[in-house]
């Protein structure tokens, strides 16, 4: 679907790179290892009230932090919608609660880890922290969680017509337990280590507000089929961010070589696209050799089928 008047205003990311609170993170890239890689944890005390966040898992803290930072950068104190994409949800609390009744029996259990185990915990907490009574949705659809969340924001703004600021986050957590299973079961492509991230965007439809890039197209198909190839042909992006082999003349950069492999990695792909279109020094730092960069497509192919095409343009 060709989009009009939809923008990404600002973004924030906690990842295995030093992306958080560091605008020039790409100048000191961390090499990927073979082992599962966890995010570089920010100094939480510096940004979050330690008492209020004492019982929160890492994924909740990272989500709150990135949401607040993106809002700050956008210069907004309120949100109209909170849309969270997470394939595996709050793994740490889920396993903690499973372990608690396995080890302590089913009486006298503490509810804390159960309360924090549901996928919508993240969106609920963000809404509470910024007192957002508006639209609140959580989408959990494996490798398409982030794309279908972005589409949710687009459809919401299309329907509402008035100016809106939507938080759209792509969040996945790696625990020692899930890292063990992902590795043993080879759930993902072997080319990159399994990893995690919390990446978010302020997506809006307000021409007058701060705009980083324009979100110009979003398409979801059954596979990397002719529809997608036709989109590349017609829209002529200068660069494709993808981990798949794509039959076209457009250069392809595998962004998972920077962020690792996880179900909402395409959110990092979009984050990188924004960085590439807005920061002149990013291109050479990450190793993209394209002379003119105005339009980027992010193509994500699901191991079990299905494919997404996102496209952003410089403003």
């Amino acid at each position: 679907m060709q989009l009009q008047n939809i923008y990404i205003g600002s973004s924030s990311c906690v990842s295995i790179q030093e992306t958080f609170d560091n605008p020039l993170w790409f100048e000191s890239l961390k090499p990927l290892t073979k082992e599962p890689m966890k995010v570089l944890a920010p100094d939480y005390k510096k940004f979050l009230d330690p008492t209020a966040t004492r019982r929160m898992s890492k994924v909740l803290k990272n989500s709150l932090l990135t949401a607040r930072q993106a809002m700050e950068q956008q210069g907004i104190a309120e949100l109209d919608a909170v849309i969270t994409a997470t394939a595996w949800g709050c793994q740490e609390d889920t396993t903690k609660f499973l372990d608690s009744f396995e080890s302590m029996g089913e009486e006298l259990l503490s509810p804390t880890s159960f309360i924090q185990s549901t996928h919508n915990t993240i969106g609920g907490l963000i809404a509470m922290s910024v007192k957002c009574n508006g639209y609140n949705n959580t989408i959990s659809h494996d490798f398409m969680s982030f794309e279908t969340s972005l589409l949710d924001a687009v459809l919401l703004m299309r329907e509402n017509k008035q100016a809106m600021n939507c938080y759209v986050g792509g969040i996945d957590e790696l625990t020692d337990f899930s890292a063990g299973i992902f590795t043993k079961a080879q759930c993902f492509n072997d080319a990159h280590p399994v990893a995690e991230a919390a990446t978010c965007f302020i997506v809006h439809n307000n021409e007058a507000q701060k705009k980083a890039v324009k979100l110009s197209n979003i398409a979801l198909t059954q596979s990397l089929d002719q529809t997608v190839l036709d989109l590349i042909q017609q829209n002529k992006p200068d660069l494709i961010l993808s981990s798949s082999v794509i039959a076209s003349d457009v250069p392809v950069f595998d962004y998972r070589g920077l962020c690792g492999e996880f179900t909402t990695a395409s959110a990092f792909g979009l984050y990188l696209a924004v960085e590439l279109l807005t920061k002149a020094s990013a291109k050479s730092a990450v190793g993209v050799s394209v002379a003119v960069l105005k339009k980027i497509a992010i193509i994500n192919v699901y191991p079990e089928g299905r494919c997404s095409y996102l496209e952003v343009e410089a403003c």
């Binding site: 279908t148 459809l155 329907e159």
Partner: peptide
């Protein structure tokens, strides 16, 4: 298109909204 909503007890109702849109 297929996707999955997980908003606890309102999940199915939100799936219906997504579908309508």
């Amino acid at each position: 298109i297929s996707t999955t909503i997980s908003t606890a007890c309102s999940s199915a109702a939100n799936a219906i909204i997504y579908g309508a849109r």
